[in-house]
Nucleic acid binder design. Structure first.
Length: 503
RNA sequence: GGGCCGUUAGCUCAGCUGGUAGAGCACCGGACUUUUAAUCCGGGUGUCGAAGGUUCGAAUCCUUCACGGCUCACCA
């Protein structure tokens, strides 16, 4: 029998870690619990600053407060020393003196390390140099920290460590904290707006027997008891529309989608999507809704509609530009094209622009490729692109006067697709045909096309779905825009990474 | 998946044309009762990402691999 490898919790015990473990043992031996269960504070640090920030340098307020937080700085000065601790609301200086604490307790406190979490009680005062401080009268160690934090001046810069050990990133880099807090504000604002407009938030399956509602390669998982494969959803769309068939009229879901595709600065395998459905509305209503919603989120989270993204101004105020796809190709690509041209002509134009067309591509797909190649990246200011080709919009209603295109738009900002919406296809017979066409694409080897017709969805449509507008917004990308982050990984608390290398 | 770049102390980084690894902060010991990146004195704590190869000698040159970043492809 092979010998079990010894369980090793930490890979390398460094000198600093050894010393901290020794301190831990010493504390335990002296009867101290270095990992306490609870601590009651009278104030957040921000409150103390609010209340006493204006007192004069040198002034003693006599006011006793109890605060708690992580030690960030220690300045030992002989018989009187300083520390800085921070809690969720801010940071404040602690003043420790042998005179107040007594020699033993003073020395014990000075033996604590940067990173330790303490609770302290003392009188608020301001030093001669004008630094608001707490003159510590009693203290308790709440949590002993066993690893050294990155240095105070340069902080933690290594991107890999920042993503893998986001907890350290959050302790050290205020910017990371701000981005994640902005994210929750944005999400909260979106829910608020929708709730205020009579939409109800619902939850639909993440585990789906057929991964539908988008064109993407799904993750496959397995249900043991049922003995079947399931897919992690690539979109909630088809279930949300079932709820519209069920006469809920206004629903939204703000949650994760999973797509088994490459990673990039704009793509994470799991990402957060908002989908909104409104009965008796069409894509134009959704355009208005989308514009209002994004503006509301920006105002709530950023406080302004005039943004800067990667040093370029982005102005969300005013009416957003609206262009059809074909118009945009002429305006931004300088290329006049139309569905009236025949397929070979369009194929030739695409080839001129370096697009490698596949045999089964039709006019719509070619035009969309041209749009993506020539236009999308240039749309920096918010722009709605409408009249998406039917060929690439299997779930949208075609325009009554032009079967080549659909009642659909995409919202492009900073060259990124932030949202898409359409007048939902409600005709079950048309829907079935489009599903069948998609399945055929899968058989051609398109792994992003569904491999199976969602017959239950068609059945639902047969009961009758009211005219409905549907909207999807990529929340991560919206957060990137509003927080001026270039990489999607910055706006995701734990972005996907390969497993850490083991040596 | 392709291309380019990177990986050196806990952190941030230097290390030239190959000569046996260095700074600041952190840490350890000492001094200091109002400091502010405190200061002063003393101490370098390292599998130079990993494995091979070339060489008298490799952090440095070559190959492969791992991880990361950017980019192209992919991705409505």
């Amino acid at each position: 029998m092979e010998k079990e490898p010894e369980l090793q919790i930490t890979e390398n015990i460094t000198e600093v870690m050894k010393i901290r473990r020794q301190k831990l043992e010493k504390l335990k031996a002296s009867g101290e619990n270095p990992f306490k269960a609870k601590f009651t504070r009278t104030n957040f640090i921000e409150d103390v600053i609010q209340e006493f920030g204006m007192v004069e340098p040198g002034e003693q307020t006599g006011k006793v407060v109890t605060v708690a937080g992580r030690i960030m700085v220690i300045r030992r000065h002989g018989k009187a020393s300083f520390m800085v601790i921070k809690d969720r609301t801010g940071s404040i200086q602690l003043f420790l003196s042998m005179g107040v604490l007594g020699e033993e307790r003073y020395k014990e406190f000075l033996d604590y390390d940067i990173g330790d979490i303490v609770g302290v009680t003392g009188k608020v005062f301001k030093t001669k140099r004008g630094e608001l401080s707490i003159n510590i009268e009693s203290y308790t160690l709440l949590t002993k920290s066993l690893r050294p934090l990155p240095e105070k001046w340069h902080g933690l810069k290594d991107v890999e460590t920042r993503y893998r050990q986001r907890y350290v990133d959050l302790i050290i880099n205020p910017q990371t904290r701000q981005t994640l807090l902005a994210r929750t504000k944005i999400v909260k604002a979106i829910r608020e707006w929708l709730d205020n407009h009579n939409f109800i938030e619902v939850e639909t399956p993440m585990l789906q027997p057929i991964a539908g509602g988008a064109a993407a390669k799904p993750f496959i998982t397995h249900h043991e008891a049922l003995g079947i494969n399931l897919y992690l959803r690539i979109a909630p769309e088809l279930y949300l529309k079932r709820l519209i068939v069920g006469d809920l009229e206004r629903v939204y879901e703000l949650n994760r989608n999973f797509r088994n595709e490459g990673l990039s600065v704009r793509h994470n395998p799991e990402f957060t999507m908002l989908e909104v459905y409104q009965a008796y509305a069409d894509y134009k209503d959704m355009m208005d809704l989308c514009e209002e919603l994004v503006k509301y989120a920006a105002r709530q989270a950023v406080g302004s509609l005039k943004l800067v993204y990667q040093e370029q101004p982005v102005d969300l105020s005013g009416e957003w530009q609206r262009l059809t796809m074909v118009e945009s190709i002429e305006k931004y690509g300088g290329l006049k094209i139309s569905f009236n041209q025949n397929l070979d002509e369009l194929r030739a134009v695409a080839k001129e622009h370096g697009i490698d067309a596949e045999d089964h591509w039709g006019k719509g797909k070619l035009i969309n490729e041209l749009f993506e190649k020539l236009v999308e990246g240039k749309l920096w200011q918010p722009t709605f692109i409408t009249d998406y080709p039917t060929e690439i919009s299997p779930l949208a209603k075609t325009k009554p006067d032009d079967p080549d295109v659909t009642e659909r738009f995409e919202l492009i900002i900073i060259g990124l697709e932030v949202g898409t919406a359409f007048s939902e296809l409600t005709d079950p017979i048309d829907q079935l045909q489009r599903f069948e066409a998609q399945v055929k694409l899968h058989e051609y080897g398109d792994e992003e096309a569904p491999r199976q017709v969602d017959e239950d969805y068609v059945r639902a449509l047969e009961y009758g779905m009211p005219p409905t507008g549907g909207l999807g917004i990529g929340i991560d990308r919206l957060v990137m825009l509003l927080t001026d982050n270039y990489s999607i990984r910055e706006v995701i608390s734990f972005p996907h990474m390969r497993p850490e290398a083991r040596d």
